[in-house]
Design a protein around this nucleic acid. Sequence first.
DNA 1: CTGTTAGCGCCTTCAT
DNA 2: ATGAAGGCGCTAACAG
Lengths: 327, 327
Amino acid sequence: MPTVKDVAKRAGVSVATVSRVLNNSEKVSEQTRQKVLKAIEELGFKPNLLARNFRKDKSNLILVILPTIANAYFARVVKGIEDTARKNGYGILLCTTQNSPEIAAEYLKLIGKKQVDGAIIASAKIEIDFCKGLDTRRIIQACEFYSFLDTSCVKIDHKKAFYDVVDYLIKKGKKNILCAIGNEDIPSEFERKEGYRKAIEENGLQFKEENVIRCSYGWTELYEKLKNFCCLKKYDAIACSSDLMAVGAIKAAKALGLKIPDEFSVTGFDNIMISRLYEPSITTIAQPMYSIGEKAAQILIDTLESPGVFEKQKIILPHELKTRESA
Amino acid sequence: MPTVKDVAKRAGVSVATVSRVLNNSEKVSEQTRQKVLKAIEELGFKPNLLARNFRKDKSNLILVILPTIANAYFARVVKGIEDTARKNGYGILLCTTQNSPEIAAEYLKLIGKKQVDGAIIASAKIEIDFCKGLDTRRIIQACEFYSFLDTSCVKIDHKKAFYDVVDYLIKKGKKNILCAIGNEDIPSEFERKEGYRKAIEENGLQFKEENVIRCSYGWTELYEKLKNFCCLKKYDAIACSSDLMAVGAIKAAKALGLKIPDEFSVTGFDNIMISRLYEPSITTIAQPMYSIGEKAAQILIDTLESPGVFEKQKIILPHELKTRESA
DNA sequence: CTGTTAGCGCCTTCAT
DNA sequence: ATGAAGGCGCTAACAG
């Protein structure tokens, strides 16, 4: 593998000049530049990024941590990040944690070791004990915000979003509305529950803790729970915290012979493909996934490249209620 | 940021010894090791991977190129790669190309520039002109194999898979079977078409080019085509090259009032989640996606780490016919 | 078992 | 506009 030295020799210039050409420095005469370019071409020289990055103390890599990509939601976020990163000359190092805080922690250490310049944590579960000594200016939280990690973040207002969808159900005449959410130790799930509560109470109905079902994001668990729910017929709607949960709810309602949406309405969350494809199609909340990724990446890159101090930002992007057949 | 030098000074040893401790070299007395560890702890020293990688001429990064991850199929492949990579101390640099050969080419150059140690091309479209001068020992093709790039590969036998599913349809009594595939310049699509042809002919039916429909992998295009297909009722089945195509076909058949599977059978490909969830659930071919990723990563890593010459391998993994309601 | 030392390839002052 | 030279942090001979 030829090095700058070889190029320099062949072009009859110094390595400094070769380096200047490589980095598009202005201060090289056109004639010299051509000589160097020719030598590079002839030698098939390729700059060694391992050396360059080391010298510049910069990896041009952004770590992206998420629970999984087997989920169209996260796939869009990643795409937003990736496109923005590429546009700015960065690559992305992918880490899917299956919500293991240990794995997230292990990868976050790469910042201190300079393997990556910064990280975007997109919904991946993290724990306070694993976040000691992290450089919070090099980290952005996306979709989800754990307040114990003092970083910038980009997300939607989950409380408002869930409020909107429950309010919509009530305006449609529903009165006994269930709520299916994930574990409340996840900030967004807690927010969503609060949105449910607010919509219920503001509309003069009564909030009951027992109407809040906790389950995983897939469709099976909620399906099983509802199918065996002795008195599902007492209720006329359910607001779910994911589109897959909504599928589970619809399957259960169908199994019990309930007409959707007249006898029983179902709403989802995230607007993944299935919510459009399913029959009935599912009323849901669309998050601007691509924009979240894009914005998160942009803030991170700006921070990394701005010399001064950047303030931590909390960006709230707008969500959208997609009304379809299920409610 | 403290360096090995600082650690050495504090521990009262040489940098070489610190380096030995860092790299778990056996040749350090337990006592010295403890001293060094203590100094590392007290100083909060973190090895600079930019420097280490440069010195070792190794990035410990594997480039993964795919058309998209907004597709459960690829997400599983990536997971297989990622898990295997992590287990072996590698990270993965993600590149989604939307099937742009230019973008793929651009990223593949990172091998020559040593930003990554090797690459796995998983189904992403590549072009011969962009593949000049690539080190084929550092590249594995997964899922798809373009023969102009002489690399190892890991995939299923697409011809056999499509043969199996069409044969299944015929055994079920279907006689006029359509075939919906993607563009034939994609090797696997060509193979699948050959599988279709073989099953038709081996069963004494007549292969007709006009029964082969070409369309994109999403559900809409095939849906539109079939809905306006004047004589869909002449046919009693369609074998599709993706599960989403199958959804489109089912939607069209339903729209024309055809009973599935009795009047019209539909099969998909890939066994993505929707094929189980959809109603009717979709008969399809399951590819061992995770294993493909896993195996591809393992071969690549073995090649990278074996000093000698590795032979190019062609690994064919088994597929599986999942019979469900749609056929 | 431990220390000394020479780079890895590149960029970047500092001269000229 | 160009060249000479130092050094980024680490590892790996080699010497002892």
